[in-house]
Design a protein around this nucleic acid. Structure first.
Lengths: 334, 334
DNA sequence: TACGTTCCTGAAAACCTTTTCGGCAACTCG
DNA sequence: CGAGTTGCCGAAAAGGTTTTCAGGAACGTA
């Protein structure tokens, strides 16, 4: 299966390569009949242009590098899908690189991508805390997604975790709940702090205090969700809603509530975080949760990068609003 | 940040581009001192070769296309990671494309990838049943992973599901179990059938029949796992092991056993399938399961493709053995 | 008929690298 | 001292495309 080149097309159409090129690219200075001949020849030969050669002369490759730090982590994937999707429609392809959290591996990948003359870079971090900038002496625009760059001159797109916490609590309040507890993950995660801050702020607005006396920080696991819920019920059996910092934790919460025969949502309402379908849809009952809209984040990152490729992209950190996904674990009281 | 070209390096080193190229590529016909000068110049200018130009002349781009049908699905990711990992060490990069199960979208992507002059293609399917071949008139080698091609002339790398079923049951038998049930997913999935066949074969070897009278096909969900387990316990309360067709189903199984206060693994042992960490590690107790070794599959696919790029790759379907991951949900009886 | 326009077309340069091959200098050896 | 080797280096072609610019043909006008 030998590939046809533009030369072959031109020869078959009886024109020069220059005209063939112009005909194929829709340049105006070619007669309609000539263009038709070229098009016909091209399709006959199943011609598809060599993008390497195109890139060499146009200085645009139509490729971007997507640099992730943890592919196995669940958060990179939706972002990646969003970006791939957005680019798919413009004809740009994405190079996927997984640095596995290793910074020298990351450097290596950046070098390779630049060597491939990508038009831009999207860096998606493993967790929503800031990460080291790639620097400013790069010849292409870089956009940071999920984990912001630690350099404010870079452009970062992140999730609004404070807004997410606020959203969850707001929903519970609207359901008539007044004794709302918050069980969440590792306190060293900025995300945990932000969500808690948002939750507390909304409670305060309503004149409420958090049930359980304080936010329960711990780990991002079902086991912690179970343990914390047991302690919580022991000390504050009258709690009527629990906002969990992740769907995993929420699963643990539900598990213990079920064990204790406390009806969800009749007696206690539960909200999770992440909208990780495998956990939320299968839960008993299916879990109301906060969706970070990561796919949208990826899509926007792609678009921003695309428009920035010619000119320049801004700087600073843009926050994206999460959304509430209601399922059966929450409902109005009575 | 303008990029240095080989010309710049050559000029700085006081040699021709030809010698500069040879020096950088380790060709022998260049004096040591000259090479040193070139190397020095290159590093001084932070030179990195333009791979587009290289590809144009060498007819090798050092890129492969990875065509997946369902990125969100959990099975593509490990394969993708394995491939990315294997390629990372050779300096080849991967173009990621998600066809979203749409065959015209897939065609589109293939065209684009060929236009980019990828050196090869890895096609990873959504489910382990056979899928349409991309055809044989492609100018690059293609390798099918997870979902085999429906054309035996293609090379496909798949998981040995029959072996997996056998492995699970074998483990349960070694744990002294004799009344082993199998609750699994959608009967229209080849994977479900294969796993069941392997399980039954191993039981027969031991002179055992499957507990519950037959294999319980249903859906790949926790809810089905719960429902099936309830029915099973009602009719056959003496079952001492359950092999679940997926970790999701296993979670449902565990849930009901827990509700019924049947000790796991003291009274009933449970084995899952997939080793989906988020489900298995958090289960109560942590779940023994079958790991399909998908990362290895991806790695091998990459290697096969790489060695095939020069020559030709074989055909047929190669099966890869899954492995047993033991956790606390299984243990010897008494 | 001579000249200026308007339309199309094609030759050639450019993009950056690899690779072949010829040539020059310095040797070795008879 | 001449001929044959050996070791390094550079000129040039090649890879496939886009784009600029010059020029030819056809036409209208004076």
């Amino acid at each position: 299966m030998e590939r046809a080149t533009l030369r072959d097309v031109a020869r078959l159409a009886g024109v020069s390569v220059a005209t063939a090129s112009k005909a194929l690219n829709g340049q105006p200075q070619v007669r309609a009949s000539t263009r038709a001949r070229v098009l016909q020849a091209a399709s006959q030969l199943a011609f598809s242009p060599n993008t390497l050669a195109q890139g060499l002369v146009t200085q645009r490759t139509g490729t971007v590098g997507l640099l992730t730090s943890d592919l196995e982590g669940r958060f990179s994937i939706p972002i990646l899908m969003g970006a791939e999707d957005a680019f798919g429609t413009d004809q740009t392809s994405v190079f996927l690189c997984d640095a596995r959290g290793d910074s020298i591996r990351e450097k290596h990948h950046v070098r390779a991508l630049l060597s491939r003359r990508v038009d831009g870079l999207i860096v998606v971090g493993a967790r929503p805390d800031s990460r080291p900038s790639l620097g400013h002496d790069l010849p292409v625009p870089v956009i940071y997604a999920y984990a912001p760059s630690d350099d404010p001159r870079d452009l970062s797109l992140v999730v609004d975790n404070e807004g997410g916490g606020r959203l969850a609590v707001d929903h519970l309040i609207r359901c008539g709940r007044r004794k709302i507890a918050h069980i969440t993950g590792d306190a060293t995660y900025g995300a945990a702090q932000d969500r808690a801050r948002g939750a507390l702020a909304r409670l305060t607005e309503e004149g409420l205090a958090v049930a359980g006396g304080e936010v329960w920080f711990g780990m991002w696991s079902e086991a912690w969700g179970r343990g914390a819920t047991r302690m919580l019920l022991e000390r504050h059996p009258d709690v009527d809603a629990i906002f969990a910092g992740s769907d995993e934790i929420a699963r643990g919460v539900l598990d213990v509530l079920h064990e204790e025969r406390l009806d969800v949502p009749g007696r206690v309402a539960v909200v999770g975080y992440d909208n990780w379908t495998i956990l939320t849809a299968n839960a008993r009952p299916p879990l109301t949760t906060i969706d970070m809209n990561l796919e949208q984040l990826g899509r926007v990152a792609a678009q921003r990068l695309f428009t920035a490729i010619g000119g320049t992209l801004g700087s600073g950190t843009e926050k994206f609003a999460p959304k509430l996904v209601t399922r059966e674990s929450t409902a109005p009281l009575r």
